[in-house]
Design a binder for these strands. Structure first.
Length: 502
DNA sequence: TGAAATGTTGGGGCG
DNA sequence: ACGCCCCAACATTTC
């Protein structure tokens, strides 16, 4: 049975004659013995437990599968695809060209490979998105039934979600005890493994090739993004070193200032596994212990917390954790949603954040909180819309972090900001971008305003606007809502929610 | 990882 | 010297 389907596969593919002949020959003698290593969110050679394990077996076929079939509504967004495209190229180079790429349902990809090779084992590092857990569980059972040796590893979390629980066996719902009593009291995270060198790798000539995955957009908006990022494992380590040099020593305070280089910007690399949290954790810990290092480590803890929340609440991306929010009267306001997305709300701190996102595929963490608060609380637009926009436009879009953070912002999450915590983008700007350099960078049309009015141009006297060459409503929008009034409205609406649920 | 309103304190100017 | 007022700075309460 395997023989006939083999020939069929070969005829379909466009191999050159030599490769065809040698494969047919192999087919007659014996199928090549290999183990499969399946790359997923772990596109690296350093500290890759699954790959290190596979490497012990000899001939390893390293593969990547783009699976848009099982992901449902959570299909990878545009910015993520851009990143993935380059990350795969980088990984392929590290593997000296031996990365074989496929598309579709992994089960059929595996079946095809099982027909053409004698597969002695299949190994991968675990992912934690509910749809991936579901898919991989089924797949693992299937492979085991054949039987084929299958083994999975942890390469992307410092602590497995099922290892961090309260004494009563329930998951933590508040960050601080989750991190302090849960994570820090649990076993120290695994030490990073050495880089896989001398991998005896195999290449499958009938793989698709990275380009045929069509990960880049047709209208090439990615060209601008590309200027802001180096992508791949080496780039991840360069970014890490840069952060240690430029950002860590003032991390605790500087992390709130969007114009400073104090945040790590490692999130896209971590998401795609170009650098491992274990590597970062142990490197940083080896530098000693102070408030900056501790705070940075706790941010890795926040990531663990997001994954824990998603693991124990698989519908975190769709459903309010606090169900009383189900009845909240969100506004269907596609015009204002569009203005928020494009960064033309007329509120500089919000627009700066949204334009940073659009231009670079990234947004400073503090800006994410400000624009999120604005969308949900000042515009009263459902957090799903923010979640979806971020999902499509962020290069570090991560299901756990994205959904947990939006639930936090909206106030419906587990350890959420209470409803009356509403950011004032003017005050946040004055406090956190005191030089105004963040706003001026992304909103050049108001750059000539003095700092005093930079965050609230509508308050500026006409002569100052004139002098700065600004005509509100023409060169820069009037604010789409009154901050004070919309804040009061929101508080009333959220207050009502509290009362109804009593 | 909020902001505004309200309350408290203490120093300095002044009659 | 003293009481009074003003106000900034800080603390607490409220939404």
């Amino acid at each position: 049975m395997a023989w006939s389907s083999n020939r069929f596969t070969i005829q379909k593919s466009n191999l050159d004659l030599f490769a065809l002949k040698s494969l047919v020959l192999l087919d007659f003698i014996m199928k090549q013995k290999i183990v499969l290593f399946w790359f997923r969110q772990d596109l690296r050679l350093l500290d890759n437990p699954g790959l290190s394990y596979a490497a012990k077996f000899g001939n390893v076929l390293p593969i990547y599968i783009l699976d848009d079939q099982n992901s449902g509504m959570q299909k990878m967004g545009g910015a993520s695809r851009f990143w993935l495209h380059h990350s795969l190229y980088s990984l392929r180079a590290s593997l000296k060209g031996h990365l074989s790429v496929y598309q579709g349902d992994p089960k059929s990809v595996f079946n095809d490979l099982l027909n053409r090779y004698e597969v002695q084992g299949v190994f991968w590092n675990r992912c934690y998105e509910p749809w991936r857990i579901q898919r991989d569980k089924t797949l693992k059972n299937y492979l085991k039934s054949l039987p084929i040796q299958t083994r999975t590893f942890n390469a992307s979390l410092l602590w497995e979600p099922w290892d961090i629980q309260k004494k009563d066996g329930k998951p933590y719902t508040v960050f601080s005890p989750f991190y302090r009593k849960g994570c820090l009291k649990a076993e120290t995270p695994r030490e990073p493994l050495p880089r896989v060198v001398q991998l005896k790798s195999v290449y499958d000539p009938s793989e698709l090739g990275i380009d045929s995955l069509n990960l880049l957009p047709n209208n090439r908006w990615d060209v601008q993004l590309e200027t802001h990022w180096e992508i791949g494992e080496n780039a991840a380590h360069n970014r890490y070193q840069e952060f240690i040099k430029e950002g860590l020593s003032n991390y605790k305070e500087g992390r709130n200032l969007p114009a400073t280089p104090c945040v790590s910007r490692l999130s896209p690399y971590i998401h795609f596994g170009e650098i491992s949290p274990n590597y970062i954790w142990h490197e940083v810990q080896s530098l000693g212990s102070n408030k900056n290092i501790d705070h940075f480590c706790s941010e890795l803890g926040w990531r663990e917390f997001s994954y824990s929340q998603l693991y124990y609440n698989p519908d975190l991306p769709d459903k309010n954790l606090q169900s009383k929010f189900d009845s909240f009267p969100w506004r269907k306001d596609s015009k204002n949603l569009r203005k928020w997305q494009k960064g033309i709300t007329g509120i500089p701190m919000v627009d700066a954040g949204m334009r940073e996102l659009w231009q670079t595929g990234y947004m400073h963490n503090r800006s994410r909180m400000i624009v999120g608060s604005f969308l949900v609380k000042n515009l009263l637009i459902h957090w799903h819309h923010g979640e979806q926009w971020f999902w499509d436009t962020l290069i570090d879009a991560d299901l756990a972090n994205n959904s947990a953070s939006w639930q936090w912002t909206a106030g419906c999450g587990a350890d959420a900001a209470t409803y009356f915590r509403i950011f004032n983008p003017v005050i946040q700007g004055l406090k956190l971008d005191p030089e105004g350099s963040y706003v001026r960078k992304f909103i050049p049309e108001i750059a000539s305003l003095p700092n005093e009015y930079l965050f609230s141009p509508w308050d500026a006297p006409v002569e100052i606007l004139d002098k700065a060459g600004i005509q509100l409503g023409l060169t820069y929008p009037n604010p789409i809502v009154d901050l004070n009034q919309s804040r009061d409205t929101a508080q009333e609406a959220f207050q009502l929610l509290e009362e109804v649920s009593l």
